[in-house]
Design a binder for these strands. Structure first.
Lengths: 158, 158
DNA sequence: TATTGTTATACTCTATAACTATA
DNA sequence: TATAGTTATAGAGTATAACAATA
């Protein structure tokens, strides 16, 4: 099953080196998942770079919009972000005028997160870009059924 | 479509806070891919931690075993690893006695990569662990057809 | 005593530039 | 001039510990 142990360049001329055997590597589910995820993230980053929105920023804005008034800890935990790292992230969004940190009335330790009006408008724009991107992905996958199938399969891995 | 803007803790007692709306977030293909990939990688890391093998280490060993004598640059490129970062990785594997860097006879700049006998034995063990892990994943997914389907769908995203 | 937000810090992964020795 | 390996370095992303204010 192994290839010949020694390998010298072919004497038949300066042709390109033969392709590597990658069968075993590419059969690894985790490896293929990572490659696909990186590919999709790269597209996301390319589409969103003029908005200066990284994937994590976008998911935070979406989540705050759907759940206004929640604490930093709550939003961070749902997204799997450590609260210590979430501080910098939400601070950036606040400095851009997209998010407000309003001291909670019920718990003086906590900040209630809200989108500003500018943040809501910005999110509307970002969502339209995202819709277009998802449409591209659906086309790549071969239709909405394929997308639903993929999401269902991914769900089983979590 | 938005929830009520203001949010105060319910006056009906100290019950747990309501769950967050996560529909929009979880419908993002990239986000779901990332979550699934992280989940699979965490399992991989847990299974392989006693072997002190990270995912990248394992894929490098597999690739060298299938393509003995190749240059560092070739192995690194196939795996999407920068050659500068590959130096540290392969150095670690060499120090553990799993990989040999043999100066190429045809090109004095290059190192031909080979597994040592110890490396081959170690890889055999790692592969058996990996097979067991993949079997778990297949079970999670619901069968080999589901796995093939997932890999086919992931392929379309690259 | 526990939790919220915060700072500081460290570790991994990844990316680029520049060097050397060869080609 | 280009390439292979290397070093140094910088930037993300992520992880933990510890602190002040509050619960």
């Amino acid at each position: 099953m192994t290839m010949s142990r020694a390998r010298k360049s072919s004497p038949s001329g300066p042709e390109a080196d033969a392709a590597l055997k990658t069968d075993a590597t590419t059969s690894i589910v985790g490896y293929r998942l990572r490659r696909a995820q990186l590919s999709v993230f790269q597209k996301f980053i390319a589409v969103f770079e003029e908005l200066k929105l990284r994937p994590a920023d976008y998911s935070v804005l979406v989540l705050i919009d759907d759940n206004p008034g929640r604490k930093q800890t709550e939003i961070a935990e749902v997204l799997g972000i450590k609260r210590a790292n979430f501080v910098t992230l939400v601070h950036g969004l606040e400095q851009r005028g997209l998010v407000e940190r309003i001291p909670s009335l019920e718990d003086k330790r906590a900040n209630a997160l809200h989108l500003t009006t500018a943040g809501q408008n910005f999110l509307r724009l970002a969502k339209s870009r995202h819709r277009a991107l998802e449409d591209e992905i659906v086309t790549q996958l071969g239709g909405t059924e394929a997308r639903a199938l993929l999401l269902a399969l991914l769900d089983r891995l979590i």
